[in-house]
Design a protein around this nucleic acid. Sequence first.
DNA 1: GTTTAAATTAAACACTTGTTTAGTTTTGTT
DNA 2: AACAAAACTAAACAAGTGTTTAATTTAAAC
Lengths: 208, 208
Amino acid sequence: MKSNFNDKQIQILEVAETLFAEKGFDGTSIRNIAKVAKINIAMVSYYFGSKERLLESLIVYRTSDLKNQLDNLLQEDLEPIEKINKLIELYINRINSNRGIYRILHFEFTSKKREQNLQAFSELKKGNLKSLETIIEEGQKKGIFRKDVIIPLITPTILGTFFHFHMNKPFFENLLNLKTEDLYNNYIKTNLTKHIQQTIKALLIYES
Amino acid sequence: MKSNFNDKQIQILEVAETLFAEKGFDGTSIRNIAKVAKINIAMVSYYFGSKERLLESLIVYRTSDLKNQLDNLLQEDLEPIEKINKLIELYINRINSNRGIYRILHFEFTSKKREQNLQAFSELKKGNLKSLETIIEEGQKKGIFRKDVIIPLITPTILGTFFHFHMNKPFFENLLNLKTEDLYNNYIKTNLTKHIQQTIKALLIYES
DNA sequence: GTTTAAATTAAACACTTGTTTAGTTTTGTT
DNA sequence: AACAAAACTAAACAAGTGTTTAATTTAAAC
């Protein structure tokens, strides 16, 4: 799939991503972006129309291929619990290596200020939920998963756990002695991912 | 415990809380606050020194008594799993009825911009974690809880689930048909809280 | 009732914001 | 080489930013 953005636009988008993620949308100025990207301040308006539309373009640029990845997972020949584990891994991996944009989505598109631009994002979430539902219902049909779980609340547990961990990065770096970026990333890839998988598995299979 | 703020300051703090929560710290101007609170724009500087220090005061104003509530819970005569359930309920209830400030904490104090003001907040979190540890170790000693859970990751699961749900409020309102504020709040108090309790219980007790 | 401190105000300050304009330079096409 | 479209620029724009100032009103103390 070819991108609709040219090199210069992508350059701007990626600088904007970093800065929005670091300092928020309102905390980042166009002059700020222009300086870091080494472009003229007028180029943002020239290429994207406005700062607001730059944000929209950024969302499109970064979230366009998640759906495909999920669809592929669904069609793999795996046990439901394995699919769940892989889905969790996929989510964490993807979000973790695209921290910027997900942080932005998390922050900017949940405030009242930007409720309008919400639609495309909402469609993405609905699609993701559908995929999860398919897997879980498969597990329930096979008698492996319990049937009294509220499926739409599982995503908040998966993503919320990750986000809450990541948003308190300095706290956990200190607490868990994750001195380098590598140690931190490794902790997410192993311990945190495993914790989430363990949690969801316990929730889906446990019988009181 | 008496508050250090006078009526006028509290009035300003509460308006600021609402606006910061709605539009973010950078998205809210002093003139904005002054208009809603019906005060002169100079009063913010007069009473708090600066916009930044207004935010600090707001944190102090809102988080000062959580520690006591947790300490009380610890000393109750309950089974560990009951204490966990109550702790979850306490967290959700408290955060849910102080949404503003927690949203602000969540947003503002996790961005690189405000890393300095982090210390007091970090102490609060450490204290909370200590309380949770105490309860879980008690359960482990009694042979009720499994011992291979990573305790510091449980808080992210509890709070993260709630936050992720709440930050996607419009999405879940639509999905779960929670047309009124009452329905939404009730869903949190019952279904969401139960989901989190069920999840944590499964995680702590489940034996593969 | 006068004095003194606190509370409140309108105006000004210097600075930053997003966007537009009117050019200039670069690039590609014929 | 000549032209046209695209890319790029510096400068200006009006509006908004947080903070300070100097003056005025209100309240408390004596």
